[in-house]
């Protein structure tokens, strides 16, 4: 084990802001990317489903169709 105590671990030999800042920002970017991927998937599928309904001529299809055309 490298550390005398947990507080020594968190202090990172005085480099805490740099080390934890690096890891923190990376974690945020990774989580952010995952959320964006999921959201884009949802948006794309919703758009495709709307487009299909619009083609089928169902209710509410008109608006969806205009959205897509625009």
């Amino acid at each position: 084990m490298q550390w005398e105590s947990w507080s020594a671990f968190w202090q990172m030999g005085g480099a805490a802001p740099f080390v934890w800042g690096s890891y923190g920002i990376t974690a945020l970017l990774v989580v952010g990317e995952l959320i964006m991927v999921m959201r884009r998937r949802k948006d794309a599928l919703r758009r495709l489903l709307r487009l299909r309904r619009a083609k089928a001529g169902g209710s509410g299809g008109r608006r969806a169709f205009e959205e897509i055309v625009e």
Partner: peptide, 24 residues
């Protein structure tokens, strides 16, 4: 990165940024 790798002689603990910096 945090519990097995030792302190670096030159830089101390701050070198631990390497474990994400280089792979990224």
């Amino acid at each position: 990165a945090f519990f097995v790798a030792p302190t670096d002689a030159q830089q101390g603990e701050v070198y631990r940024v390497i474990f994400i910096h280089v792979p990224a």
